[in-house]
Write a protein that binds this DNA or RNA. Sequence first.
DNA 1: ATCGATGCAAAGACTTTGCAGCCAG
DNA 2: CTGGCTGCAAAGTCTTTGCATCGAT
Lengths: 156, 156
Amino acid sequence: MTKREYSSKEIQALIAQRGLKVTQQRLVILQFMLTRETHPSAEEIHRELVDQYPSLSLGTVYKTLDSLTSSGLLHKVFCVDGIKRYDVNLQPHAHLYCTTTHQIIDFEDSELQQIILAYLQDKNIQNFQIEGVQLQIQGTIQNLEKAVKIESALTV
Amino acid sequence: MTKREYSSKEIQALIAQRGLKVTQQRLVILQFMLTRETHPSAEEIHRELVDQYPSLSLGTVYKTLDSLTSSGLLHKVFCVDGIKRYDVNLQPHAHLYCTTTHQIIDFEDSELQQIILAYLQDKNIQNFQIEGVQLQIQGTIQNLEKAVKIESALTV
DNA sequence: ATCGATGCAAAGACTTTGCAGCCAG
DNA sequence: CTGGCTGCAAAGTCTTTGCATCGAT
């Protein structure tokens, strides 16, 4: 599964289009999220970026994740461990959750999203206005060695 | 959507079968969970029970939820709000999550579960052994007054 | 120049832990 | 009895908030 690369210009545009000021912190955090397949928490993001940007504060990471989320650039991920995690949300996708390693990996499949949404719209649930669906597929990663390789290649 | 009633004897048996001591607190908390369609957090459970059982402490609620979860009587629910919630419904089902009130309501639909599982088995995801799926449907409860009525009818 | 964004620190919310005493088995 | 469980309080973790200062537009 490959993510396309985003230039600094493109990332600036994504932020500006939402009416947010294009600050160094927002650029850095959004860029970080765009290069990740995993779904880091605020603390993980801060820990990974603070070496390169020592003045970046944890509070700013939280505030930035909030504003990027309310402007639709990120989504919160639901997760049993009770920690808020974030996901760059450019297309709808499901999550593979490994019950052994607790990793969350993207599973992009627009057909499946379509099927679920179509089914639900057809059902026409009483008194509930659907905004979206999130699917988590629980299981175990089989070929662990290979999976870890993929992971580390992505997180360089 | 109707839940079957459980007698005190049955609830005692559920606890004892797992090798846990049958204490007043565990009885009360499990009974409370069994009568709910929603998925309360530890604090909500405590708030609702403390009037009737004034000595019940919040710490005990947390510990009880932990032991009931590790013995398989409850499940943790995946939830974007970062709060740990628990679920007693042992049949597979989806959750309706209201982004306004943060309520989680069960949505039982075995056909939908079948459709999703069949689709995924057909896809035969590489290096991943599926154990199950969890679907969260995000949106807003429309007819709030009516919804609250349903709610209170269920929780008597 | 303006107003939103940042950094810092303090407060807040949620959860876990430690331990003395209690009670189910 | 006795080992597991409870209640209490303190500590821990994660997140939000308030405010002076800064910087993008």
